[in-house]
Design a protein around this nucleic acid. Sequence first.
DNA 1: TTTCGTTTGAGCCTGACGACCTATCACTGA
DNA 2: TCAGTGATAGGTCGTCAGGCTCAAACGAAA
Lengths: 216, 216
Amino acid sequence: MGLEMIRVMVADDHQLFADGLSQALDSLPDTRVVGVVNSGPDLQEALETQPAEVSIVDIEMPGGDGIDSISVLGRRSRAIVVSMHADDEQRKRAAKAGARGFFSKGVPLLTLAAAVRAVADGRNLLEMDDEERDHVLESYREAELDPGAASLTAREREILQLLALGVSATDELADRLYISQKTVKNHLASIFQKLAVSDRTQAAIEAIRLGIAKPG
Amino acid sequence: MGLEMIRVMVADDHQLFADGLSQALDSLPDTRVVGVVNSGPDLQEALETQPAEVSIVDIEMPGGDGIDSISVLGRRSRAIVVSMHADDEQRKRAAKAGARGFFSKGVPLLTLAAAVRAVADGRNLLEMDDEERDHVLESYREAELDPGAASLTAREREILQLLALGVSATDELADRLYISQKTVKNHLASIFQKLAVSDRTQAAIEAIRLGIAKPG
DNA sequence: TTTCGTTTGAGCCTGACGACCTATCACTGA
DNA sequence: TCAGTGATAGGTCGTCAGGCTCAAACGAAA
């Protein structure tokens, strides 16, 4: 099932924050946290064995400033710096050290996710003025979908959402949508083809995995 | 589909932290974040319209100390206080204000989840010494499963995991498990009964929802 | 030792599913 | 105005899924 994830490394000494962020990014269809470290030196070491397109680095970490560690990352991984107290001073230092993005921890998750996509795509958010950055982030707000999933029609998505909620029988789907069972089966056949699956069980799983629908 | 979740309210002014924690707790089978607020006064207001068994409150919030807001919660919700810089001073103040738990943000997510379960169950973690608290948290480490899901056998779980990975056809399941197709169908019938579902699509979704298996 | 739950296997039968094809109507963009 | 696409609906056909019942072998627990 094609779909190359953006691999993300998280460096933060607050375990709870790192765990939460990991879980959140993993739940998005196009990002995957491949490692969590608690200090700057650990970040470099982790990246040697586990490559990651983007690293999210807390500026406040014990054992050396987070900024120091990103300046030596080089081409291995592109850094987005997050900070508890975002001020212009820190922002400038982050930019100088080669970071591609800078955010306070007050930023919404989906904005950070957009930044991860933008940075993975080669954009440098720190070289933009506020207006341009907002515009770029807006354009990366929506997750890249599978080539197949992207071509799903509105009705097909609707059926997938019901499927992921457990409405699996043809007659129930027809009742919920006020259409005939024949039409439901036609839509399903189209979905199977687009998602490259062969039955409604696999379709439901794919829908959940791609973030089109949520279980329960 | 039975399974009463522990409803959790998150109060933290750092949006990224709150979003991440919400996503993480929601991904567990027995906890659900029903609301996120960014200040103490908002917490009380939110709890009036949306009840929650447990509230996770950051001690450092603008517009009044987080401690102040939990002292007026009363019976509405039990508070677990989290702090950036956990010291004994804060811990004592939290206990005095009626909090049931106190953690630094350096705590692992699964420990906090265990604390949420313990507190929801009526335990007061702040009235215990370190040894007792560790022991209690250990006992709440594993999520409570559905009465149905709990009675699943090892083989049934194995089939559910394959199902959630997209191995949905009877013959493929039989091949993977080196058993006959008849046996696969027998196991599936047993799973359907225990999970109170009627086909493998619903079973796969339930498995994902209950945390027995992960999609993709 | 005996009983119970787990795992394995089977037969039978009905209804549902999925593959393939055609067709109408509405809307949209060229 | 006309082609293309999406949503609707129908038909047929072969296979598979799910409900029901039964049973043997095994290990663990009582």
